[in-house]
Design a protein around this nucleic acid. Structure first.
Lengths: 141, 141
DNA sequence: CCTTGACTTCAAGTTGACTTGAATATGTAC
DNA sequence: GTACATATTCAAGTCAACTTGAAGTCAAGG
């Protein structure tokens, strides 16, 4: 397929040109060929950028994503760094998911409940863990 | 109970004194009484700080937490702002949980798979949605 | 009395992930 | 050939959420 200008890449991915240049500078995206000084992107970059965004939304930092991209093809032994990162991140994702679930319960409870101040209600680490009787306010249902 | 110094509060909550001063400055924690110019905290503040940390870990910004704390006791009609925030945040939490789940699947899949480069594997929004055949690399199991 | 340690305020620095602005160059349309 | 959009680089600015440093205050122990 035809090469893309930075503006076209920006349009297709929803990422601003300034961010694309920044990613390149930071070594996260490869520097594309230049035609008369301008970036000329292989359309493959779109897929890579999609992955980048996806990983970012899942909570990876740009540094981590760089490692992810660097992959493990080049350096034997196979993939140890990448696997470590993946394992670590899996654990982090689980923890984050659990925190989110607890916050969810707490929020839902406090919406049903008529507490005047949030402190009276369920939003604390201790009370959320046994979340049925989290509410201690004056007008709890 | 007895009032606490800023150092004692820091020790009990695991939050640095600089952060406590910052929260006060930012209006997230109430300014405690001063005794000879020094902060003298009501032990209640511990609970509030616990909630603060919990909410923060669940992805709330300090601004949002401020709103959370401001609560809805004072201004009729009851709770509209706080409820809106809670609902919005619930939706956000759900989205984030889903992203995390998808990233989890993708990571697990790519650990099992022998792809040389991550692009070949499952880590993209499109392939993750039908994640059983996400791997397109050369040595996929 | 003097030192030590915990505190005070205020200003400035830090990190990650960008964005914005200035000055300049190139490509496309009329 | 002259606008105008789009591109370039580089430096500096932004934002949240703090941290660090400087300079000073205060109570208690030796």
């Amino acid at each position: 397929m035809k090469p893309l200008s930075i503006g076209q890449v920006a349009k297709r991915t929803g990422i601003r040109t300034s961010a694309l240049r920044y990613y390149e500078e930071a070594g996260i995206l490869p520097a594309p060929a230049r035609v008369a000084g301008r970036r000329s992107y292989d359309p493959d970059v779109i897929r890579r950028i999609d992955i980048l965004r996806f990983a970012q939304q899942a909570g990876f930092t740009l540094e981590e994503i760089k490692t992810l991209f660097r992959g493990f093809g080049t350096d034997t032994p196979l993939s140890t760094r990448w696997q470590r990162l993946a394992h670590t991140k899996l654990r982090e994702l689980d923890e984050q998911a659990e925190r989110i679930q607890r916050m969810r319960s707490a929020l839902e409870l406090s919406l049903k409940c008529g507490c005047v101040r949030i402190e009276e209600c369920s939003l604390s680490p201790s009370s959320v863990s046994h979340a049925n009787d989290g509410c201690r306010g004056s007008r709890c249902s």
